[in-house]
Computed example of a mutant assay.
Amino acid sequence: METSALDFFLPENLNANLPPEKRGLRRDQVRMMTLNRKTGDIKHDRFFNLPLFLQPGDLIILNNSRTIPASLQSRWLRSGVQISNRVEIRLARRIFDDTWEAFIIANPVRVGDTLRFSEKLTATVIAEKESSPLKTIKFNKNGSELLNLIYVLGAPIRYEYIEQPWDLNYYQNVFATHPGSVEMPSAGRAFSWELLFQLKKNGIQVDFIQLHTGLSYLLEGHMDPKENPEEYHISPHTMEKILKAHSSGNRIIAVGTTVVRALESAARNGELSGATNLYINQQSSLKIVDGIITGLHEPKASHLDMLTAFLPEHQLLHAYHQAIQEGYLWHEFGDMNLII
């Protein structure tokens, strides 16, 4: 889904095409633009100084989902006849242990077509929807056996601004534990163990939820969040901690738009586990989240709509124009934005 209002020109040289480590930086040395929700003030710093902008008692919520190598190459067969010997399949969302929604980068496949990834792994196209570019595919393996084969055969999903492939480790957050995200929950990438320890030392609380991020971008544009449900899980202990901090007047700071969606969904429906397709924009009243740590989002991205729930559009666009003038870097290997 795209917005019409939040548009701006992003110079191509501001697309981060290298991980920070390949630019001579530690993860937590990327730049950080801080926006004050009350005053609109903008400050520029480095991410390792995050503790200076927070207060004892604040609670940071991170997404501990781990990225899987969700881009797979396959042969495409119809009625046993090979149509193409190399088709890219991008996994989008797990439905069952052996069934996924996927984006197949090829001429339209049909229900009944076969995708052959290796001698051990195949999948059959079992469903399609007129309103969606995604197909439902059913693998011949399931559970941990399927996941192991995906790790052997797959590669991280890579978009056009990343000029060369990078190892899966570059797409992992240091604290990630539960495999399932097809794209890195990239707002957490700049956290190092040293920074996490420093936050706790300063009396700033840290806890985790799990939301497996789905495919957000297709060849022709962004996925509509309303049509892109994502599976989340919040433990009762974590929710109790969130509610206690919230009632005590401490700030809840979500790391990433995925965490905002999960927490606000739970606050609205009372369910600690489920799938969320919650769409948040300037008309939304945030019930539990007070601040967000996120990357910089490209023009017309639906993520920008969510940020207008924290800041008025004109303030957000002013800050983004300043970030462009200052040479901030965009996307998953880029710089960070704290709105609080």
Rank of each mutant, 00 (worst) to 15 (best):
Leu218Gly: 13
Pro185His: 00
Ala123Gln: 06
Tyr161Phe: 06
Ser192Cys: 01
Asn281Gln: 00
Leu134Tyr: 08
Leu196Ile: 15
Lys300Ser: 07
Asn337Asp: 05
Gln198Met: 12
Lys22Ile: 11
Thr258Gly: 04
Pro225Asp: 05
Thr114Gly: 11
Asp28His: 07
Leu243Gly: 11
Ser186Lys: 00
Asp207Cys: 09
Leu219Pro: 14
Pro51Tyr: 05
His233Asp: 06
Val259Gly: 07
Leu35Met: 14
Ala245Pro: 05
Asn142Gly: 15
Ser65Lys: 04
Lys201Pro: 07
Asn15Met: 12
Arg116Asn: 10
Phe310Trp: 00
Ala5Glu: 13
Ile234Cys: 04
Gln55Cys: 13
Pro225Glu: 00
Ser192Asp: 05
Thr177Arg: 12
Ile104Ala: 04
Glu160His: 12
Tyr171Glu: 08
Ala16Gly: 04
Pro56Phe: 06
Ser65Pro: 06
Glu194Ala: 11
Leu272Ser: 02
Trp76Gln: 01
Glu298Ile: 12
Asp58Ser: 06
Ile68Leu: 01
Ser181Phe: 07
Phe117Lys: 04
Leu62Gly: 02
Thr213Gly: 10
Asn17Glu: 06
Thr99Glu: 13
Leu25Met: 13
Phe117Leu: 09
Ile324Cys: 03
Tyr217Gln: 15
Ile105Gln: 13
Ser186Thr: 09
Ala323Gly: 04
Ser144Met: 13
Phe333Met: 03
Ala102Pro: 06
Glu230Phe: 01
Phe9Leu: 12
Ile83Leu: 15
Leu54Phe: 08
Lys244Tyr: 11
Ala127Gly: 10
His331Asn: 09
Arg26Ile: 11
Lys22Met: 14
Leu54Ile: 11
Leu199Arg: 03
Glu313Gly: 08
Arg86Asp: 09
Phe117Cys: 09
Ser132Gly: 01
Val255Asn: 02
Glu227Trp: 12
Leu272Ala: 06
Leu52Cys: 13
His178Thr: 15
Ile105His: 11
Glu160Thr: 12
Glu145Val: 15
Ser84Gln: 08
Ile288Phe: 08
Ser192Thr: 13
Thr276Met: 02
Gly188Ala: 03
Ser118Arg: 06
Thr39Cys: 08
Ala262Met: 05
Ala323Phe: 04
Gly256Phe: 08
Lys200Ser: 14
Val260Cys: 00
Gly24Pro: 01
